[in-house]
Design a protein around this nucleic acid. Structure first.
Lengths: 250, 250
DNA sequence: GCAAAAGTGTTCTAGCTACACCCATGC
DNA sequence: GCATGGGTGTAGCTAGAACACTTTTGC
């Protein structure tokens, strides 16, 4: 391990940062969930202040000097949704010069996948309204449909349309080789194969063959020990009882 | 497109950034190339100033207020290597609190893949020495072997060992579905299948079957029009003449 | 008995792996 | 003639797509 010399420690004690201009740094969270009807959805907040007053944005905020980027993202997630201990993944960093009309702001975007029922949307201060939007697409681009509002791509604040597009793309690419899908489960300690199948279908935007999905699931997760049977079955409500599985937490 | 109201324009005219503390933002470049003996290599510079004086680091520098992150990375690449118009990809952003002992620094890492012969290593100011290091690995982690120096993982400045590890991982994952491999070619307007095969073998760290690689190459790049035959052949020097291909620039 | 999820079996094929084999050329 | 890279052919295997079919339950 690197041990600084006495000379270097002396230098650091006397170090005073120059007063050159610095950009502001924020974290922004793309929070994905699945709607009741199994549609990919995202949490947006409505801006009540300038700039982009009235437009919708992904939630975020300034990075404090005492917290890491991930800590900042997790703090913001908690403030917005009440959720803690959610795995978050860094998406990308957006830093074009004019992306915030006030000043230079560099934004590190994170993404999180959360089960809908756990979502407890805090508008935070009344400075902003929060809503869940289903993700659609037409010729002009993204269309986000909430319960009370419809938001088109160009009604998103800052460069957030680009951030969201990047996130959707990344999620689709990742879903097969990460464990993202499990994070959408309401309860990853008791779920059926077909609940998980629904999640994959939603994210990929295509229907999957039930038999093939089942075999893939068994080989990829059960045979490797990542998922085990709970021993329970669903109490049959209208159909044949299904085996319940549990995600093994590493 | 969003048109700010007169009120919002007024707000922006009068906007003065608060004087809260801001982190410094840098870009750092992981510059990959292949050595003469087809070994994956990376460009490092030796620090001649505190902190981490004498240790090796990936090149980088502060982001100017007037340039985007990518522009900053490209500017640094040019200063270090003389290379321009090289495609660069954002790797990840590193922002742990103590990663720079002087002050809070958030670093956006980029990666570039360049042909070795084009590399014209500028030490820049004499404040630093630059050298190409082949990438090896032993039980303790990364070992970087240059022509004059050998650098172990813990002799890298800041969190650059982590940055480099992340970059190597990403490169290995990307190589099959991106066009990174072509960027390592000395001349992508005239190359043979086997030159490209060598690059894939180096990055993946395994030998590939010549026949299968050839068929894959033809299907993946030639059939899709991404690569075309030049019409020329290698002037036979000790062996059968090989077809020369040219990458089509989109 | 029908709808719908749960679960199993089987066929067919595209694509990959492995490997054998021929060609061209310089030494 | 042999080493080396250039280039072709093909047998065999496997993952996966497609789909047929059975089970269980509530209505």
């Amino acid at each position: 391990m690197y041990q600084p010399s006495e000379e270097e420690r002396e230098y650091l004690r006397n170090y005073r940062p120059g007063d050159y201009e610095r950009p502001s740094v924020t974290v922004d969270n793309v929070i994905f969930t699945l709607s009741d009807k199994h549609e990919l959805s995202i949490l947006l907040i409505q801006r009540r202040n300038f700039p982009y007053k009235g437009l919708w944005a992904i939630p975020g905020g300034f990075v404090e000097m005492t917290e890491s980027l991930l800590e900042a993202a997790a703090r913001e997630l908690k403030e917005e949704t009440g959720l803690e201990n959610i795995p978050m993944d860094q998406l990308a960093t957006f830093g074009d010069v004019g992306r915030d009309p006030r000043m230079r702001v560099i934004s590190v975007a994170y993404m999180a996948f959360v089960p809908k029922d756990s979502l407890n949307i805090h508008a935070g201060d009344d400075a902003r309204d929060a809503e869940l939007f289903r993700i659609y697409r037409n010729e002009e681009g993204l269309v986000l449909i909430g319960t009370r509002h419809v938001v088109k791509e160009d009604e998103l604040a800052f460069d957030h349309a680009k951030v969201i597009e990047t996130a959707i793309q990344r999620l689709k690419n990742r879903i097969d080789y990460t464990e993202d899908a499990f994070h959408f489960l309401e309860n990853d300690q008791s779920f059926t194969i077909y609940e998980l199948k629904k999640i994959f279908e939603t994210v990929k935007g295509e229907n999957l063959d039930a038999g093939n999905f089942r075999r893939d699931f068994l080989k990829k997760y059960v045979d490797t020990g990542k998922v085990v049977e709970t021993g329970e079955k669903t109490s049959a409500n209208g159909r044949r009882a299904a085996t319940l599985y549990r995600k093994v937490r590493q």
